[in-house]
Design a protein around this nucleic acid. Structure first.
Lengths: 169, 169
DNA sequence: TTGGAAAGTCAACATCGCTGACATAAAATC
DNA sequence: GATTTTATGTCAGCGATGTTGACTTTCCAA
């Protein structure tokens, strides 16, 4: 199963596919992801919320009016898990769940002004770190970063990922 | 707080630093990380272990003989959390905790043959996904991927990250 | 009109973080 | 030698977040 260095017929080195290089990538994901979530986690503490609340808020902000089912698919959790989170957000007045216009079984989710404020606070913190990393690495590195991550995610998620409004690149 | 497009004195575009681009990066991290952990998670289920066990096993394998304190620093959890995990791993015969030679308070951690087997199983799965992503994106993208992740992680973690034996690149 | 999808709810449980308190052994220091 | 600090282990309890299973309500659509 171990893949060592090799040369492809065409001649390019495959040194970047050695187990050592892959291990570095794995650890980079671990360390970077922890830093990536640390900033919003600190903010959430003050509000008695957790990471699950952040994720819900993020995707509701990104696509206002999305249904519970759509959110479920993006988050990849059970409706029971999500429901617990959504209920507190609705009770606390951060999220509004409007009965669907065409299909009244559905709930269309929206951030209230209060919800949007928290969303801004959370994403500002997360963007600040991302921006610093992007700036330090430069545009070419960022393009590579996005390519590798996109290749790594599940194909179904790639659909959601690409559906977001994108500024190009 | 919103940073729009701009041009740097030198003339290069800063379009890659727009809020939209940052949001895409944030979502890419979320989706990719979930895929990244999904494969080992599936294996761990069969063994009644969780992600915390995987992380401990990974770092003990990477640096055999490391102390509990060193592992604690890398994982960024409390000793109580780690202890619960380590205890089960020792009880199940996956990890050996040897009393330190020079400082008898310390415990040096090693994988047993059984532990190494599980480690291999877990990391094979994780490497397979990483390898596929690397291959799809190509060496230049991989370099950028690593640059951005390294810039994103906490400086203290960067030390651990770089200390690993690296095959260059 | 009836079947099934969407949503909500309740109960129980596991993992894995956390804090706080305390015990032990050994190193380090006064 | 006595004291303090460090490394580790352990117990109890809590909270967030995930799970499965069972059940109800609502309501669209065939």
């Amino acid at each position: 199963m171990a893949s060592g260095a090799a040369a492809v017929p065409g001649g390019e080195s495959l040194l970047f596919l050695t187990d050592e290089q892959l291990r570095k990538g794995i650890e980079a994901m671990f360390f970077a992801y922890r830093a990536f979530t640390a900033d919003p986690d600190r903010i959430l503490e003050n509000h008695q919320y957790g990471r699950a609340h952040h994720r819900a808020i993020h995707f509701i902000n990104r696509q206002p009016g999305l249904t519970v089912n759509a959110l479920l698919a993006m988050l990849g959790v059970t409706k029971q898990s999500l429901n617990r989170v959504l209920r507190t957000l609705v009770e606390d007045g951060l999220v509004e769940a409007r009965v669907g216009r065409t299909d009244k079984r559905e709930r269309n989710l929206f951030l209230t002004a209060k919800g949007a404020t928290l969303e801004r606070e959370l994403s500002d913190a997360q963007r600040a770190r991302m921006r610093a990393a992007y700036r330090a690495a430069g545009p070419a590195a960022v393009a590579g970063f996005r390519q590798v991550l996109e290749a790594m995610m599940e194909p179904e998620m790639r659909r959601f990922y690409r559906n977001g409004r994108d500024g190009g690149a």
